[in-house]
Amino acid sequence: MSNAFFQGRLVRLSSEDPLVMAEAFARWNQDSEYFRLLDSDPAHLWSAKKMKEWFEKDLDSALPNNLLFSIRTLAEDKLIGFIAFDGLNWTNRDTFVAIGIGEQDYWSKGYGSDAMRVMLRYGFTELNLHRISLTVFEQNPRGIRSYEKCGFKLEGRIRDFLLRDGQRSDMLHMGILHSEWDSLEQEWNKI
């Protein structure tokens, strides 16, 4: 059986044992540049043990509104990041998507965009979502460009959402509708 459903051109989405994921997160979160692009919470260094407990709890939740995948390269099967649907709302058929490429060597090379396209296909064709949403900080132009490439449109700007190093900055809302993704997917498949 082919696992093409979870496979892109550079990466595949996979699932890890809680310990593997926790150790990767504990390693990546020590990169403060990575963490600050990822989260509005103050930087925090949690132990692998504590994060393993959280991932284990996710395993036990019966009806998930949170779906987490690891991102592995096709070439070397290297674990480079994660992607997740967070806050799936089945009534509205909407979810937020979060992505982090923890290994900086794999930034700006198309791995994140590839993983996002696989995730969009999964969300629209398997979960039957109506739209997929995300938020991104204005100081993350790499992320914004990647999301635009994947078809996300800018939907607004939450002013002064972050306070860092004494500076206020905005958080952007982006979204893609199922109908918009349909026509893009046809384009991508031609390439």
């Binding site: 009534t91 509205n92 058929r93 909407d94 109506h130 739209r131 949403s133 449109k153 939907e155 607004g156 700007r157 939450i158 002013r159 809302h173 979204g175 509708l177």
Partner: peptide, 22 residues
């Protein structure tokens, strides 16, 4: 109105934009 999340909420038989005010 800071953001208009298109067709992000469903009730009364249709999708509506979700407005984020600030």
């Amino acid at each position: 109105i800071e953001a208009r999340r298109r067709e992000a909420v469903f009730h009364n038989g249709r999708y509506w934009d979700m407005l984020h005010l600030g």
